[in-house]
């Protein structure tokens, strides 16, 4: 699957961080990008359009990244949507909780555009097998 055809949903409560991730994605060829400022808005976006992969921050008010992941996996229409979790640190307990909840992969800040692309490609390759 070509980057141009992958629709990415960025979920982060900080507008600046959403812009940073959008900028990194653009650098490696992604063009179809939508944003949500928290988990609640992300679920609305997921219900209204076809999203190929979710790139979500862990720490957010209202609904954390983990809660969003659980909500996505619990919804029969959205359950198979690939989910990449963004974290400031790879704490063992958090990683275990995210894996248990069905995360496809996670990425630790700071990260380059290339690493982000690699993680998304790995997820897309594994689900397209």
């Amino acid at each position: 699957m070509n980057e141009k055809n992958i629709k990415v949903l960025i979920v982060d409560d900080f507008a600046t961080m959403r812009k940073v991730i959008r900028n990194l994605l653009k650098q490696v060829g992604y063009e179809d990008i939508v944003e949500a400022e928290d988990g609640v808005m992300a679920l609305k976006a997921l219900k209204s359009q076809k999203i190929d992969v979710i790139v979500s921050d862990w720490n957010m008010p209202n609904m954390t990244g983990l809660e969003l992941l659980k909500a996505v996996r619990a919804d029969p229409e959205l359950a198979k949507t690939p989910f990449l979790m963004v974290t400031a640190e790879a704490l063992q307990d958090n990683v275990v909780a995210a894996v248990k909840a069905g995360v496809n992969n996670y990425i630790v800040k700071p990260f380059t555009a290339e690493v982000l692309n690699e993680k998304i490609k790995k997820i897309m390759d594994s689900i397209n097998k």
């Binding site: 507008a15 600046t16 812009k19 940073v20 653009k26 400031a88 640190e89 800040k109 700071p110």
Partner: peptide
């Protein structure tokens, strides 16, 4: 970071400083 020319100390700057501080703390703690 944003790929655009920021000329004044707006809300983007405040958010970015918080995020940079958070990330430096994350790498240093690791």
């Amino acid at each position: 970071m944003l790929g655009e020319n920021i000329k004044s100390m707006d809300g983007n700057i405040k958010d970015a400083v918080g995020e940079i501080t958070n990330m430096i703390s994350g790498v240093a703690r690791k």
